[in-house]
Design a protein around this nucleic acid. Structure first.
Lengths: 350, 350
DNA sequence: GTAGGTTGTGCAAACGATTGCATGAGTATT
DNA sequence: AATACTCATGCAATCGTTTGCACAACCTAC
């Protein structure tokens, strides 16, 4: 099928080395005659030569591949990250291989295993979180690694993520400013970096405002939409339901919207909603959602840059970067009369 | 760093062959003694052995990798396809490598080149379309290939896609039934399979209803949201604007929504909207969009099955599968008085 | 005419795994 | 006691590249 250097060497009557040099070496530093170069290139084209990267990688101990692991490709946030990272890595001459772990730590382990078996040159991981012995191992084996979005405070590893605490502060402070005090938080997967830090910000905002944290208003356990749906239904049934909900991720917010619609709850009239993440469609939702936006492009640029640096220079000190989130105010939050928690006065943001 | 079979052989005092057989062979057909097996496995664990898939792939001429090429990872339709396909292939013991071509045919070519250089065992491609000489080459080189979503009628290649003509018929017939006659179509990238077939269905529906096709109402050239935005603005400025718009893809519809919002056009009161594709968020939009849903899971199941079949049996006859789309009626279409095209009578779907 | 440079190319080892064939020791059969 | 198996393992070639070293042929210079 596809021919090899040897085939071409035989056909042209030169050695394999020469063919290799002509085809892959820029053939300047070895001085191959014009004549030979022509002959070889010609034959290569005719015979449909295609380099075998397995062989090259084996010989060179370098594959020009980066492994990328995310918890959920279908989550708009991560698909945007992947897309952006793809462009970034292409610029640097690297290809990449993505694995989707479905927020399952055992799939994450096996993804890492596969990628290392493929001898990727580096890894970018948005870890499920929760546990990090397997991540630690990569670090110890001195394989270039950057954590993105999800990282571990206690682990000395290059990482870039958004300042989740600050993001939650922005969101919850906004709600408080609009008069809300009974604010529920629908979590993502407990134990993950993103979730814990967002939770922390939520609590801190309440605390700073002198509002007691009500554990009954902290619910949920997953970043997917079903979780948002179920927990919203639950919250609405409470004897003292919240006047506002803050969701830890975009899909959760969608589920929450669905539950509200089914129950005839109007947003923001009957209930206010703010979410972490701000994918393309938030502004077209009914109502347009007030949301916390993450600087995705900046994240991926930095992740790529940090990975390149680590690959060049394995022993530099590690860095942890926190980027600034942004609150995008739209129409899903109502101003609440401070006199009572029962009557809502609807008023759209302008 | 990572040890090799040779390292383990030296440490345990057996040959490389034996180590290989113990570690990768199920070691049943060669009868390795229990004792040796234990010794080898023990050493492998201690030394952190990790198979080198480059070496294995080179020797075996098989990589257990499938290449996947899509026009836009961030498009919810494709990210759903990828996710679903990932699970499907994992079941079959295959990994996969995704490339995003950004609807750019030259990136598609280079993606194919890269994947073939990696010696993937098979390819699944949602081609940009337009031109297929590069696809033809894969087929001629006898590399297992399945086209998904986007295919070429004139090319004898395994493919699975939705019946786009029928999808458009569903959409446009629905609009006609509700009294619309001035129906615009905002296209995706011209020349692509998805676009041409959707356009064809659009025209056919009009034709069947005895409505003349107005070329001024066929606009656009891209599957992204900006296209929907610009073309909607344009359509609204027409001296005789359409009463309904049918968009060729979900992102186009988002752009269209944005344009309407900016211009104070209420959907469906002032303008009806139906779109091809039905990602998770359509039902939460304002208004919930009437949309054509594609059976993604079925598509990926079939694509994987067809690829496996092709890999096992390279010379079976090729098959082209068309799956049935589905119209999901929501709240973005108003019934139009048949007496006049100027006064709209708004009426929500129940 | 001998020492030293340049030019163009080839040899062969290495990367890490797989596997058909061979082999030597032990056991069973006749 | 010769034959025939089975058992457990090793040898060595192979997959396709890359690259340090060697070398032959030619040129240049004193």
């Amino acid at each position: 099928m596809s021919s090899t250097l040897k085939d071409i060497a035989e056909k042209t009557g030169v050695s394999v080395s020469t063919v290799s040099r002509v085809l892959h070496d820029n053939s300047k530093k070895y001085k191959i005659s014009e004549e030979t170069q022509e002959k070889v290139k010609q034959a290569a084209k005719e015979m449909g030569y295609r380099i075998n990267t397995l062989a090259r990688g084996l010989r060179l101990q370098k594959t020009y591949e980066i492994g990328l692991i995310v918890p959920d490709i279908a989550n708009p946030f991560f698909s945007a990250v992947i897309k952006s990272l793809a462009g970034e890595l292409r610029k640097g001459g690297y290809n990449f291989i993505v694995y989707d772990t479905d927020e399952d730590i055992s799939l994450e382990r096996s993804a890492i295993k596969s990628l290392l078996e493929k001898r990727v040159d580096g890894l970018i991981i948005a870890s499920v979180g929760q546990e990090f012995s397997h991540i630690q191992k990569i670090r110890d084996a001195n394989i270039p690694l950057v954590m993105i979005d999800r990282c571990f405070d206690s682990l000395d590893i290059d990482s870039v993520s958004v300042d989740n605490v600050k993001g939650s502060l922005f969101a919850v402070n906004h709600l408080i400013k609009e008069g809300h005090t009974r604010i529920a938080f629908i979590q993502g997967l407990p134990g993950t970096y993103a979730n814990e830090t967002r939770l922390q910000g939520y609590k801190q905002a309440l605390h700073d405002a002198g509002i007691a944290v009500d554990e009954h208003l902290i619910v949920g356990d997953d970043f997917r939409s079903l979780n948002g749906y179920l927990e919203t239904k639950h919250l609405l049934k409470l004897s003292a339901p919240p006047t506002a909900i803050f969701t830890a991720g975009d899909l959760i917010a969608l589920g929450s919207l669905e539950a509200c619609r089914e129950n005839g709850i109007r947003i923001p009239h009957d209930l206010s909603l703010v979410t972490f993440d701000d994918p393309i469609f938030t502004s077209y939702l009914s109502p347009a959602l007030t949301a916390i936006e993450q600087p995705i492009t900046k994240m991926t640029e930095m992740a790529a840059a940090m990975l390149y640096r680590r690959m060049r220079n394995p022993n530099d000190e590690r860095r942890k970067v926190l980027l600034e989130p942004k609150l995008n105010v739209r129409n899903s939050v109502a101003r609440l009369s401070t006199l009572t928690n029962i009557t809502h006065i609807t008023k759209h943001e302008k």
